[in-house]
Design a protein around this nucleic acid. Structure first.
Lengths: 226, 226
DNA sequence: CGCCGACTTGACATTAATCAAATGTAGTGG
DNA sequence: CCACTACATTTGATTAATGTCAAGTCGGCG
């Protein structure tokens, strides 16, 4: 976990200091909120175990999921600008996070430039992640979006030492649809279609990617559409 | 400009130090690149004069505009994570920026916590800005997107002391379409429709918002669609 | 067993894209 | 000043993609 999350390349000494401030762990049961939109911001959260989704609600009352977070990823960076959270964070399964009191983290920045640099990289990464999501939502067709989503999940599981081909979706079809800007029916149809084409196996939320190359090509738009 | 951009609430002394590192100004003629995707990252850029667009190109060769930047806004924060730019930045008109050598900025962070805090707010703001764009692209219908876009531009011009109702679009219809995930034809039709409905006046790139309330309601989805 | 929620599938409607053409605008050179 | 070109925009007709509505089906759980 330390590899994916904050520290990365800190000395022993600095590591200790960091460990001192990220004391408290917090369990978050399935479907419960880690934080809600407009809550006052005091902590960042590092996911230790489980999965989360973050979602916004617009004035019209519609929900959009802005991301899914898994172990080793950081939650709450969007709240720094206003000291209030801009979205809800909800556990997709029983999960656990580390609280990182932001004020104390800021104190460390003054003396630990390596930590600071790493923190900047993480915020920047969040920006590029969202730019990719914009590309997906603005430019891609339904088929491409779902392919890109699955390939992205696979790569994140690989980075965590899990199988790149077999994994369980932690989120509902509805969540996927919301994230990809599609309806639940479209997601369902596309999964069925991919299955029929032999690109993957699906059984409930169990996924087996059978032809990652084809899925990647589809995501990239490098493929003649069927 | 200092109000919108980096400093904000720094002491005289700190301000001087900051001014020392953001020495160089750079003129960027219309349609030319401030930086290109994959360029090595060395500087952030603060827009002094003019307007920019940032755009990504996906594997299929299609372009998506991820944002429009105006005076006082910061460019390049997405490059911190990999030391390479993730998008192209192109001037929409003859423009001018301040180069901010990031390595030197980082040196200042150690001794200027106020500057650091402000920098974090700006990165965080970039994250929330992009989350709003995701909401727009994922959830809104064409009409809502364009209304939201125009209202957003208006509010940014107000913040800069310009008219909230009369302004010039610096970008082409095609650019707007790319940003909103729509075609140029859709943008054109929608502008004509809004004009016919008396919501705004358009003449080439000159815009006059005649009923901001209605446009805001439309953007929020609070309006019965016509 | 029977209910409930999540998911699938089909028929149809709607939105926005595509294709095509016309119109307008800015810039250039005579 | 005007004709001419290149490009941006508008408008219309049609199509394709995805949403909506409506039944079903599946799986888990009391």
């Amino acid at each position: 976990m330390h590899q994916l999350c904050l520290p990365m390349g800190l000395g022993e000494n600095d590591m200790d200091k960091l460990d001192q401030i990220i004391g408290r762990r917090r369990k978050v049961p399935r479907d419960s909120y880690l934080y809600r939109m407009d809550d006052v911001f005091t902590n960042l959260y590092a996911v230790r175990v489980g999965h989360f989704k973050t979602c916004q609600i617009n004035a019209g009352g519609e929900q959009q999921i802005t991301g899914f977070q898994m172990a080793g990823e950081l939650l709450g960076m969007d709240a720094i600008s206003t000291d209030h959270h801009h979205c809800d964070a909800i556990a997709l399964e029983d999960s656990e996070v580390c609280e990182i009191p932001f004020a104390r983290l800021e104190e460390l920045f003054g003396t630990m430039p390596t930590l600071l640099r790493h923190f900047h990289r993480m915020m920047s990464q969040e920006i590029t992640r969202e730019q990719s999501a914009m590309l997906l939502l603005g430019n891609m067709r339904a088929e491409q979006r779902l392919a890109a989503f699955l390939v992205n999940l696979a790569s994140r599981y690989v980075a965590r030492g899990y199988s790149s081909t077999n994994f369980q979706l932690r989120m509902s079809r509805e969540d996927i649809g919301s994230y990809l800007g599609l309806t639940i029916e479209s997601i369902s149809r596309l999964l069925s279609k991919f299955k029929k084409q032999g690109l993957l196996g699906v059984s409930n939320r169990e996924i087996e990617l059978l032809d990652i190359t084809a899925l990647k090509a589809m995501a990239a738009g490098t493929e003649a559409c069927s």
